[in-house]
Amino acid sequence: MKLELRFFASVREKVGTSAEQASLSAQIKTVGDVRAWLVARGGAWAEALAEGRALRMAYNQEMCSADTPVADGGELAFFPPVTGG
């Protein structure tokens, strides 16, 4: 399965890229699985996307939760929560 991954704001700054095309195994079924796969890379990836860290996610440009299913050709974005001022 291939997914387009996008990273915004402080997440982008920490991981050093704004986007990548990922080829994932058939075992990856949900947004949470993708996040865990990225965290397993270690280093900046683990720090930026760690479980329990305040993070928003959108699948195919709609806000989603970790249990949202993913499919071939989808787009998944990670970004920090936005605060008003």
Rank of each mutant, 00 (worst) to 15 (best):
M1G: 15
M1V: 12
L3D: 15
L3P: 14
L3F: 14
L3C: 11
E4D: 10
R6F: 03
F7Q: 03
F7R: 07
F8C: 07
F8L: 07
A9Y: 10
A9F: 08
S10R: 04
S10V: 06
R12H: 04
R12N: 04
R12P: 00
E13H: 11
E13Q: 13
K14P: 00
K14I: 06
V15S: 00
V15L: 01
V15Y: 02
V15F: 00
G16E: 06
G16D: 05
T17G: 01
S18T: 03
A19G: 06
Q21A: 10
Q21W: 02
Q21K: 09
Q21T: 11
A22D: 15
A22P: 15
S23C: 14
L24V: 13
L24E: 10
S25N: 13
S25A: 15
S25W: 09
A26S: 09
A26R: 12
I28S: 12
I28L: 14
K29A: 10
K29N: 01
K29R: 09
T30P: 04
V31R: 00
V31N: 05
V31T: 04
G32F: 08
G32R: 08
G32Q: 04
V34H: 12
R35C: 09
R35N: 10
R35P: 08
R35M: 11
A36T: 12
A36Y: 09
A36F: 10
A36W: 07
A36E: 07
L38E: 06
L38G: 02
V39S: 06
V39C: 14
V39D: 04
A40N: 09
R41C: 05
R41Y: 00
R41G: 01
G43Y: 10
G43C: 09
G43D: 13
W45E: 09
W45H: 13
A46C: 10
A46E: 10
E47M: 00
A48R: 13
A48T: 10
E51Y: 10
G52Q: 00
R53L: 07
R53E: 03
L55T: 08
L55N: 12
R56T: 07
R56D: 00
A58Q: 03
N60H: 12
N60F: 11
Q61G: 06
Q61L: 11
E62C: 13
E62A: 14
E62R: 14
E62T: 15
M63G: 08
M63T: 12
C64D: 02
C64N: 03
S65D: 10
S65P: 05
A66R: 13
A66F: 13
A66V: 10
D67H: 14
T68I: 07
P69L: 04
P69C: 06
V70W: 01
V70F: 03
A71W: 02
D72R: 11
D72E: 12
G73R: 08
G73S: 10
G73V: 05
G74K: 10
G74T: 05
E75T: 15
E75G: 14
E75D: 15
L76N: 08
A77L: 02
A77N: 01
A77V: 00
A77I: 01
A77P: 00
F78Y: 01
F78V: 02
F78A: 00
F78W: 02
F79C: 02
F79P: 05
P80I: 05
P80Y: 01
P81S: 13
T83L: 05
T83R: 06
T83N: 00
G84I: 14
G85C: 02
G85Y: 03
